[in-house]
Design a protein around this nucleic acid. Structure first.
Lengths: 247, 247
DNA sequence: CGTAATATTGACTCACTTCAATCAACGTGG
DNA sequence: CCACGTTGATTGAAGTGAGTCAATATTACG
């Protein structure tokens, strides 16, 4: 039961590098707990030191948000099954933002110091974790571009394409689509717009049959969406495996 | 001569973790070259595989930019003396953006595979590099907030504050200020605005005595600038050292 | 000294915001 | 089973920060 949760961690890392039996054994030996959050629960709170456990999502969706001094909110990332929520705090000592559960969330919380040791002492695992962290960075860069340079329609289209691609790559997509219970308020906070405007743009996108409902992403017309969002998935580095096994 | 360049790398990493004599020796043993770029030279090109060397800035300024399909440009980060330009490509196999020299640039290019080995085999070094990478991520998150949620005046003020803080923390600030040869076009590309608007906002900021000249950041009134930009430096994690030596 | 890059200006437009209702869906308690 | 509160979605009217286009200064520099 516990082991099956760590199995998911192993499987995730193996999408990036080959693991030896020793590596796998070390992962299975990680002290951990299973934990559940309800929607709207905080997983990480701005200003707090890292918790004792580092969470890896088994099921559900979480998002990361920052507040400005004048009180507006920006969602800066969204995380799904198979994501480490919290690489950030593996080696940093203070949270500079919040992470909140979007849906009810099942995670495996791995003991932070044990995970640090694993990363520091098992090169193959380290490689995989580095790749995860660097892809996170790459996604942030694309978000900068998204909110800075695309209009409302393209921003929303781009975000939907990203989510679609990531969830699909992680193997959690059923053919009838993806349940994504983002409210329009949250969607607006993710793309840097107001709710009112998001609402109007969504209506027009629905009338174009680009999307059906932002709370349920369906494979209506991904090609048209990608076109509308100027979406180029290279930044997700989905095919990135450590073929660079120069090691 | 060569060693003095690596000395800078050592010094940088030691701002984050304590290094043992072994660690230091391993760093000094890194195969490397010294290299120079002229302003506007490309250091990294979108779409290319990683070069054989990983650059660390000894002197000068570089910036990272992405293009959208419709041809607009967004600068997503700026790098100064003491920054690794290229952690991204230490473990990823394709560049998804460009890095360009803003000024003439002196770098030490460390052999990529050797640096990988160092990071994978020397835990203290790994810790320091992780912290660098995670702080990079944190900065990207703040840039998302900056372009998504602040108005033109605040965006520019925030960017100036960030640059000021980072260069100061790296110890490269002379009392009369910082030469930052950003043109208004580049500044606009960094904050997600047009040149025309940046020009007008700069004029008003100059008249308020918030800044004097965007090409030379002077310590005119950093407190007022921080106020105008809603700048809270926590996201830079400047004080972050691995006091978490729970290891 | 000429030419290109950068900065500035003016007039006009527009995508997005703001403010303020209203509507719809849904769970809850009586 | 219905009144009611709450959350999320929608609408309308009016305002504005920033963009666009196009011209002109200004500076840098070979």
């Amino acid at each position: 039961m516990f082991d099956s949760a760590l199995e998911l961690v192993v499987r995730k890392l193996e999408t990036r590098v080959g693991l030896s039996p020793d590596d796998r054994q070390a992962i299975f030996a990680l002290p951990h707990v299973l934990r559940t959050y309800s929607a709207t629960d905080y997983v990480i709170r701005d200003g707090e030191p890292p918790r004792q456990h580092c969470d890896f999502i088994l099921d559900g969706i979480a998002f990361r948000q920052k507040m400005t001094v004048d009180g507006s909110r920006q969602i800066v990332s969204i995380h799904f099954s198979g994501d480490f929520i919290d690489l950030q705090h593996l080696f940093l000592n203070t949270a500079d933002h919040n992470v909140e559960a979007l849906t009810s969330l099942k995670v495996i919380g791995i003991e932070r110091t044990a995970l640090q040791q694993l990363v520091l002492q098992f090169p193959a695992v380290a490689r995989a974790m580095w790749i995860e962290a660097l892809v996170d960075s790459s996604i942030y860069r694309e978000w900068v571009v998204n909110v800075a340079r695309r209009d409302a329609r393209a921003r929303i289209a781009h975000l939907v394409c990203e989510i679609w691609s990531r969830v699909k790559a992680a193997g959690f997509l059923n053919p009838q689509g993806l349940k994504l219970p983002l409210t329009q308020v949250q969607l607006a906070d993710a793309v840097g717009l107001t709710t009112v405007h998001v609402n109007r743009v969504l209506q027009s996108m629905r009338s174009e049959r680009l999307i059906k409902d932002q709370r349920h992403v369906e494979p209506l017309n991904m090609a048209a969406l990608a076109e509308a969002g100027g979406f180029d998935p290279r930044y997700l580095h989905l095919e990135q495996t450590s073929s660079a096994n120069a090691s």
